[in-house]
């Protein structure tokens, strides 16, 4: 992307399938350093607390903990920072397409969500983006967001600060991501910079995490997060 040659990002890989972990390790090889692995919630919290990586690749469904999988890891690692003071950031990775699973990990603090079928290049890019503090929205997550905020039904925030709705621009960004556009393409389409796109996406992420919109609350309630 705009900063192509960076030093490899240190990543902890949390997934209960050994085959998937080794697959990801083989794929990511040079661009990312895997500094730790964990197959369940408790090991994950221990490993992350010990290694304090900038990015954690987190499976949504994990054994152990309170039975909430990735959400438990996020709760267990709340407030952790890396050696240079950055917060430990999480990228959710799942085969689940169920909206409540995805929304639950995002609301618990994950910076993005990608499906496990994602290609190696896209995954590397997503990890890099999360390490830089940006949010990663897959088309599917964008679709969920549009659904959850009623944006598809035409509900648009008057003021950008309104937490329960998306602004018109945020909605456009989400729509383009849902259509399969990369951030770069979104920027081109809307005549804005990639940085601005990232700002919009982060703002949507913040709304997603803080909003008390009842659909989100219902999801959270279903997962016993409240």
């Amino acid at each position: 992307m705009n900063t192509p040659e960076k030093k490899p990002v240190e990543v902890v890989l949390v997934d209960d399938h050994r085959m998937f972990r080794s697959g990801v390790k083989a794929e990511l090889g040079g661009t990312v350093t895997i500094v730790g692995e964990a197959p369940d919630v408790d090991t994950a919290v221990a490993v992350i607390t010990r290694t304090r990586p900038p990015v954690v690749l987190l499976d949504v469904h994990l054994p152990g903990g309170n039975g909430n999988g990735g959400v438990d890891v996020l709760h267990g690692c709340r407030g952790l920072t890396t050696a240079d003071g950055q917060p430990v950031r999480f990228l959710a990775l799942s085969v689940s397409d169920a909206a409540e699973d995805v929304i639950a990990v995002i609301r618990a603090g994950a910076r993005g969500y990608v499906t496990k079928t994602i290609g190696a290049n896209d995954l590397t890019r997503a990890i890099q983006r999360v390490a830089d503090g940006d949010a990663v929205f897959s088309p599917r997550l964008a679709g969920f967001v549009l659904d959850a905020f009623g944006a598809a039904a035409g509900e648009i925030a008057e003021v950008d600060e309104e937490l329960d709705r998306l602004s018109a621009r945020e909605r456009e960004v989400m729509r383009l991501i849902a259509r399969g556009y990369q951030y770069k393409e979104v920027a081109k389409e809307l005549f804005i910079s990639v940085k601005t796109v990232e700002t919009h996406v982060s703002s949507v992420l913040r709304k997603l995490q803080l909003s008390s919109r009842h659909e989100l609350t219902a999801w959270a309630m279903g997962r016993r997060l409240l």
Binding site: P139, R140, G143, L146, A151, A152, A153, A178, G180
Partner: peptide
């Protein structure tokens, strides 16, 4: 593969 996203 076709990625399908639908809202509403």
């Amino acid at each position: 593969p076709i990625d399908v996203v639908a809202t509403g």
